[in-house]
Design a protein around this nucleic acid. Structure first.
Lengths: 159, 159
DNA sequence: GCCCTTATCTTCAGTAGGTCAAGATATTGA
DNA sequence: TCAATATCTTGACCTACTGAAGATAAGGGC
């Protein structure tokens, strides 16, 4: 496991270090983690790891194209290794669970925002469309429809 | 001007106060402002206005359906009065200028994220699609293509 | 117009989620 | 093995924002 991510890191021109491997492993196990969750996970095998290192590693991974960062409104930044494909995210308003959704529009979707509709965006050179769908996951929908059967506290543990 | 927003506020069940009117005026003049910009603008005619009041007013306006809040990754929350229609935002990576774009897909767009494509999101009840297009505005594109002609400092003043 | 209720604002702390800088340490090419 | 330098640790600092307590002001009833 120590060198599980060696090739990935080297390919991005990054040195291979223990913190980086641990962050990558944590991200592979739990996509859509925030820096704090990653830190906690990594510290299980490397207790001295500093929070600052995790921020630095994440920045390096994103810069190297290994990880992707996104930021649902009102929450800390989340990271994932699934990169390069064009997928979006679905966030549960209640338990904050995030799931990936492929973009139905194709590989380079929504990149034509205002064609013919509004002139405001006509001058923009768009290179990325960031889409977050908000709603309720099946679990929380059931909980909301039948309050009392499932407690929000019990559920939020799973997210 | 003091009562310019009276009806709007009352219709939302909110009391009419000077801070609220000032925040609304600031937002009408400069859509896509953050709390700090609104505070600065409002303080020009009401120097004692507290930052906390602005946060409270903005929360009340959003809660009352008068304002909309959105949060481009890496930036403070932005507010606008254009509400109820389904429009999205285009953000310049360089100068952070934001422009509105109507949703080309219709009035309730992208609300069918993964139909038939991925099964992950099938259980979600989506109620909102938040779309942010990232790119370069015309001004910054020109600046990037002809560096030196326009300084980033000079340009960022206009954003 | 005055008074009462209570929504709202001011002030003061406190928090989350980071960034920045300096020096110690580890990685890697030679 | 060694030197150069990328990376990590430590610790200060920052922004954007929330929470609470008390002062103030809006608005309905008289």
């Amino acid at each position: 496991m120590g060198t599980r991510w060696e090739d990935t890191l080297r390919a991005a021109g990054l040195r291979v270090t223990v913190p980086r491997s641990l962050v990558l492993t944590a991200l592979a196990e739990r996509p859509h983690s925030d820096a704090d969750t990653i830190l906690a996970e990594a510290r299980r095998s490397y207790p001295n790891l500093s929070a600052q290192a995790v921020y630095g590693v994440l920045k390096a991974l994103v810069g190297g194209g290994i990880a992707r960062r996104f930021e649902p409104a009102g929450a800390a930044a989340l990271y994932e290794l699934r990169v390069g494909d064009n997928h979006h995210h679905l966030v549960c308003r209640r338990c904050s669970t995030v799931v990936d959704v492929d973009c139905a529009v194709g590989s380079a979707p929504c990149l034509t925002p205002s064609t013919g509709t509004s002139q405001a965006g006509a001058d923009f050179a768009v290179d990325e469309a960031e889409v977050i769908f908000w709603g309720l996951c099946a679990h929380c929908r059931a909980a909301v429809e039948s309050p009392g059967i499932l407690t929000s506290a019990a559920h939020s543990e799973h997210g």
